[in-house]
Amino acid sequence: MGILPIQLMNGLFAASTLLLCSLGMVIIFGNMNVVNLAHGEFIMVGAYTAWFISAVARLPFVAAVAGAALVAGLFGAVVERVVIKRFYQRFEETLLATYAISIIMTQIFRLGFSSMKKIVELPVRGGFEIGSMTFPKYNLVIVAAAATAVGFVCLLFYKTPFGRRVRAIRQNRNMAMCLGINASATDTLSFGLGCALAGLAGAVTAPVKIVFPAMGASYLMDSFSTVVVGGVDSFIGTAASSALISESTSVLGGFMSEVYAQIIVLVGIILILRFRPSGLFAKERR
């Protein structure tokens, strides 16, 4: 069997991971216009929570995932209340503030858990076969988690009053408030939600990644470029750009050095943004 079908499958798995890790950023960047430079650190919080619940407290992995989303979400809501809400509409200052938060979080976890890398055990072991190809069963869990998470946020943002309010505030904050919408509570909730999704991603991907305080940095760039290519506030766009980026990296990587494959994909991202600066799936703005 050739390498192409294997790499197409590997690309799908990588895309699911990328999508899962980017969703929280779509909410916070796309809807609140805050580039959360601590996004990776919220993933790290989720991963540590998952590690703590599964490896230390020895509870089932489902509890670890739920706990991670909860802890990261609550923590995000607190951070929003204490820090972020003072900086809305001031883009540069949110960058500085979230950068500071990312460093503080990394240091806190270094002091609390040391820099030693932690492993979260795979809750589902072994491989499954498609023809002569073998893939880890856990990859299916990641695909399912990513699909569920996207479905959830799409429903939440386009089918519920809460989502409608978030979109209304994004479009015209003052007017939304004139309608009696409590914008600041909605902000806290959506920032917390973005962080909860980051925490969820951290927990679900923890068993295939390595958990350590500085792990967030690698997630940040990947998520950021995915969200920007996808069109900043579009969930479907982010799903499409995750697939595009991961499939091209995997397929190219199958036929050349993975380092070169990454470089080519990065150049591709730059070209896309050169010709579609607001991303592939940006909505037309008035």
Partner: peptide
């Protein structure tokens, strides 16, 4: 094959080894 530093997705290189 050489992997990017800190890469955690080794599926491609494993496919190549196979």
């Amino acid at each position: 094959e050489f992997l990017p530093m800190e890469a955690t997705d080794c599926s491609t290189v494993i496919a190549k080894i196979k």
